[in-house]
């Protein structure tokens, strides 16, 4: 066939150049690259150390503690929490749950159902979800005499104690507000929170009273709009 002029000459292996006749000093036998034995420069290792130090500083400052709820520009979960509007109801419920378990659960039980014949239920009770003014007074000074709760008459031998003086003066409003908010949001009850300010107002209004309340007295107090 036609002697293909594009093939290199038959004597000798291919050379390293693209066009025949160039690169005379390219090796006749193709060699593979080898690696020398020079040492790594120490400044590079030092740089690695410096960068590692910097990297851990950077991550410590800007990684938000690896918390999945921390996004730029916040640097920590605490910052995100602080930037959020306070959930007053939630905080009151949480606190009230603790206080209830300490002070109220013995009588009204953990499920808010009370005990037949002894302690009236709180679940579904119109006194709990009704007027805050009446409810706060029950807690501040205690109830006395027969009460009608959910169409059932209650007149327990052991009266409920009052809690108006059970707490130090600087905590009484917050604690009562917390307990009442908790019971108003538990066991199917869904009534609005009772803020500590409201408890304080009622306390001011009744500061001259220390006797417990009867049902008739409470029913005379108007429902707060």
């Amino acid at each position: 066939m036609n002697p293909d002029r594009k093939h290199p000459p038959q004597n000798g292996p291919s050379k390293g150049g693209a066009s025949p006749g160039s690169a005379l000093s390219q090796p006749l036998v193709e060699t593979e690259p080898t690696a020398g034995r020079a040492e790594s420069p120490v400044w590079l290792v030092v740089l690695l150390g410096v960068l590692l130090f910097w990297a851990q500083l950077y991550i410590e400052n800007y990684a938000g503690g690896f918390n999945p709820r921390v996004y730029d520009p916040y640097r920590s979960y605490a910052q995100v929490d602080a930037a959020n509007p306070k959930d007053e109801t939630g905080e009151l419920i949480a606190k009230g749950e603790v206080l209830y378990s300490q002070l109220c659960v013995a009588c009204h039980q953990g499920n808010g159902m009370g005990s037949p014949g002894q302690f009236p239920p709180l679940a579904g009770s119109e006194w709990v979800v009704g007027s805050p003014d009446r409810l706060i007074r029950i807690l501040l000074h205690g109830p006395t005499g027969p009460f009608k709760v959910k169409s059932v008459d209650w007149n327990p031998a052991t009266a409920m104690v009052s809690f108006g003086s059970a707490f130090p003066p600087d905590q009484v409003d917050a604690n009562i507000g917390a307990i009442l908010t908790f019971i108003r949001q538990s066991w199917g009850n869904n009534a609005p929170l009772i803020k500590p300010e409201v408890v304080k107002r009622v306390r001011e209004e009744t500061k001259d009273r220390s006797a417990p309340w009867t049902m008739d007295e409470l029913l005379k107090i108007p429902e707060t709009p």
Binding site: Y62, G65, Y74
Partner: peptide
């Protein structure tokens, strides 16, 4: 990126560390 900030921090820090292999 709308991902927790630790992801961008780790990526960024690793990116800066790439200076080392680059220089090598």
């Amino acid at each position: 990126t709308p991902a927790p900030s630790w992801l961008a921090s780790v990526s960024g820090a690793a990116g800066i560390m790439m200076l080392v292999p680059l220089l090598a």
